[in-house]
């Protein structure tokens, strides 16, 4: 099927060239893996005048860990995240989440940065990046900006990226303490489906907790009331029961084609309990 809408295809030769192209064609869309963008153009959701392909840009395809900080370039695919030894060893939450995205044939193209740029509420990368307190590095013709992930997501399909800017990389500081993690995704069937709800959990040896939910609010949520309750305390059945009561305050799920709000709320409680226990087991070396 040819695409009904016509557009110019421009391949950026450098970041500077990309900024110039964006200025010349204000109604542009950046193209990375294309798994969201091509769908959106086909379905008539967007009609850009120009599609600017950034896959030829140098220096955006690396996964690097140096001085305790991880950098994931914006052209790194989900498959590359899954295969990375660095990510497996030091940022396993990202690997767990990446494995839950779509199918192999999509993950071989789809980038994590494209995922957070599309910023649909059901995205898989949201909760893990909130838990890791990631920073999004963007650049435009006036220079670079560092955006903390909690300020990145503004609303459904809305981010704090400005016109004329490109995301270069996502940075994450390596957690200093020994810790356990868990990611859980609820979907209608195993295999390939978008999330009904997601939860990401981090728990360290000094009983610091970080919990984030996705697909149950307009943007990924950091559950601070639950973290405040848990911080400094060892996990127990009683504590988990108290934490579960707070979930309803933190999230605002809706009923849609994939699930009802009641089911989403209930499953967030269940998945948080499972994830806390799994993170604790990992911390204990099991």
């Amino acid at each position: 099927m040819p695409i009904a809408h016509e557009f110019k295809y421009l391949k950026a030769k450098s970041l500077k060239n990309a900024f110039a192209l964006m200025e010349k064609h204000p109604n542009y869309q950046v193209l990375a893996g294309g798994t969201d963008l091509i769908c959106a153009i086909k379905e008539g959701m967007i009609s850009p005048e120009a599609v600017i392909d950034i896959k030829g840009l140098k220096g955006l395809s690396k996964i690097k860990l140096s001085n305790g900080e991880l950098s994931i370039g914006s052209l790194v695919s989900y498959s590359e995240i899954i295969e990375s030894r660095t990510i497996k060893s030091y940022f396993p939450l990202l690997k767990e989440a990446a494995e839950k995205v779509a199918s192999c044939g999509i993950r071989n193209r789809a980038t994590m940065v494209g995922n957070i740029c599309s910023a649909v509420p059901c995205l898989d990368a949201g909760a893990p990046l909130m838990v890791y307190e990631a920073t999004v590095v963007v650049e435009g013709k006036d220079g670079e900006r560092l955006i903390p992930i909690k300020e990145w997501f503004v609303g459904p399909r809305k981010t704090s990226l400005k016109a004329g800017e490109i995301v270069k990389e996502v940075r994450i500081k390596e957690p200093a303490l020994k810790h356990g993690i868990a990611y859980d995704k609820l979907s209608r069937y195993e295999g390939e489906d978008l999330a009904q709800a997601t939860v990401a959990v981090y728990l360290d040896e000094q009983n610091n907790y970080r919990i984030s939910f996705g697909s149950v609010a307009p943007v990924p949520v950091r559950a601070s009331s639950i973290e405040n309750l848990l911080n400094g305390k060892a996990l127990s059945a009683e504590l988990i029961a108290q934490a579960k009561i707070l979930v309803a305050q933190e999230i605002s799920p809706i009923t849609d084609i994939r699930a009802t709000k009641e089911f989403r709320l209930h499953m967030c409680e269940v998945m948080m309990e499972r994830s806390l226990k799994r993170a604790q087991m990992m911390l204990g070396g099991k």
């Binding site: 193209l31 294309g34 091509i38 896959k55 779509a102 999509i106 071989n108 193209r109 390939e192």
Partner: peptide, 25 residues
């Protein structure tokens, strides 16, 4: 739209959905 997999090909050796790639790419 990438859901069914019937257009799968290898792009530089990796399986991908050719319905979500522009021919120019």
């Amino acid at each position: 739209r990438g859901d069914c997999g019937s257009c799968t090909i290898l792009f530089n050796g990796k399986s991908v959905r050719s319905c979500l790639i522009l021919a120019l790419e």
